[in-house]
Every structure is written in C-alpha cells, then in structure tokens.
Amino acid sequence: MSEIGTSTPVPSSAPAVEVDGLTKRFGARTAFEDVSFAVQYGEVFGFLGPNGAGKTTTVRTLGTLLEPTSGRATVAGLELRPDNGVEIRRRIAVMPEAPGLYLRLSVAENLEFFAGLYELDDRRARIERALRAVNLTDRADELCRTLSKGLRQRVGLARALLSDPRVLFLDEPTSGLDPVAAREVHDLIETLRSRGVTIFLTTHRLAEAERLCDRVAIMNTTLRLIGSPAELRDRLFSKSVELRVREPLPDPERVLGALPGVESWSAGPDAAGTYLLAVADPDQAASAVARAVVDAGADLLALTPSRHSLEDVYLQLIDTDVEASSR
C-alpha cells in the first residue's frame, strides 16, 4: 500500500500557492492587506505572526471559505474564484485552528464521513493509512469525546491527510498541546515534509517554524519579511562577535580598529571589558581578534559569535510594529 504523500502529483514548476496583492477586510477592519508570496510544491512554508495578524483569515481565504476583498491568488494550480471553489477544495486540505470533530462519532466514523465528502474510492484503505500516519490505528473505534486534546489534534491531522491533498494548510496545529504532544505533531510534519507534501503552516511558535519550515513569512496585517529562517536572521542582524577581556583595553581603537574582517566595534553594553564587533565572517574574524588581543597583552576571557534565533528576528520586527503603532 502506498504511503501518504507518495501519490501526490507534483506539477512542474508552477507554485503550489501564489498570492498577489491579496487583501481581506471585514467592514472597516483590515484582517490582512496587500499580501504577496509564493509557495513551491514540496515546501513547508511557515506563516508567522502575533495574535490577530491575519493568519487564520489568510488560510480561510486561500481555502475558499472567505472571499478576498481584492487581489489575486492561485491555489493548487487554480485561480481563486468562487466557481473554482469546489475544485480547489478537492485539491487541498485544511486543518482549522480547532479540530472540529464530531464528538459522538468514533475516530473512524469521523474519517469515514470526510472520506465520503471527498468522494474517495478506496475509503477503508485510505482511513487506515491516515490513521497509521498519525499513529492512531489502535484508537480507531474510540469516540472522539473520550480523546485528549492532543489526540483530537492528531485525528484532525489524519482527516486532513485522507485525500492526499496537493497543499495541506495547518492552522496552528500545536496550539494548546503539551511539549510531548507538540513534539509528536512536529515529527509528523517532518515525516510529511520528507515525503514531499506541500505544507502551509501557521504558527506563533518560533522554534517550531525554525525547525520545520523551509521558508517563513512574518505577517502583521501586512507581510513583513519572507525567506528561510537563516536568511531572515542575516537580513535583520549584522553578524557579530562578542569579546570579553579581564581589564578594559587602554586603546581599543588601536587593537580592534584595523583588524581584517572586523567592520566596526563598540563597547559592550554590560560590563567594562566587553566589546561588540561587527564582522563579515565570525569564524575568520575570531582568530584575528584573538591574536590581536593577546599581542596587545590583554587577558582574553571569551570570544563568542553571537547567535540570533528566529525569535530574535520576530521580536525585533513585532516590537518595531508596536512602537510604530503607539507613536
């Protein structure tokens, strides 16, 4: 029996999702505005943003539940238009923020209902396969009412996998899960990714995005940044090395000013004797700095390349937004 993802057709080079100037307003309130991006087939695309950033509204719009106010989009090869709704929905699957299971129905009965809605042929085999993918085979006959939140989330995921969608939208699949349950969902997404399933993942867990996503977009009503986690880090933060010596250097400009690879330096914020050096390549610069400091007769305590996580990028961006809006 084939596994989830293997039968997903991967059309040539056209993107899986392409969004161009998309805007959605609810009356006077703008949920998102002028958003443009493209997601390639096989990619795990992270959609990040704070509460109210417009993530869910974007997913609902691309999933044909809401009509965009303006702009264009193609989803799974079809233009986002009301008369393409049925066909688009046939090609994608959406796992909403809340799994929305029928609690009086068993796990298998829930899946059976959706298999019917997708008009799938080999229903039994598909259900079995989806349950196996989320490790729920032995709970198939349990009523959903009796399942924990984490298990319900997994049923929601199994449901989204039933139809072998070309694009899988996951809206905060780990929200409200404990670390172990969240970890299981992460592992699952990684498995899907390794099988080439295209995933559009919204989250506000930065570590999640960093671990799972090929590229991320940071949203806050408008699209703020887009790129791989590493690219975003580089774009927002200059690379730097932190230097700590026992006694402050008597003439730091003489020691640090003319070193190859060091673009500029400044006194560190915390203690006397720390310096922040902006560098092009931290590894290369580090050895030159070490030699210069020792040659100058100072005691070297530490020389550490500073690492910025995606979280730093995110906080930096969103803080700027908060400042801008309070001005």
């Binding site: 049925v86 046939r90 699957a93 809340a98 799994p99 929305g100 299971l101 029928y102 959706f114 809605l117």
Partner: peptide, 14 residues
C-alpha cells in the same frame, strides 16, 4: 456552535 462546520466547508461539498 460545536465547531464542525468549518472543516466540513473546507471539503468539496456544495
């Protein structure tokens, strides 16, 4: 109210 309508409406059902 029970949150099951949204997943149903994301399927090809008319």
């Amino acid at each position: 109210e029970q949150g099951t309508l949204e997943p149903v409406l994301t399927t090809p059902v008319r």
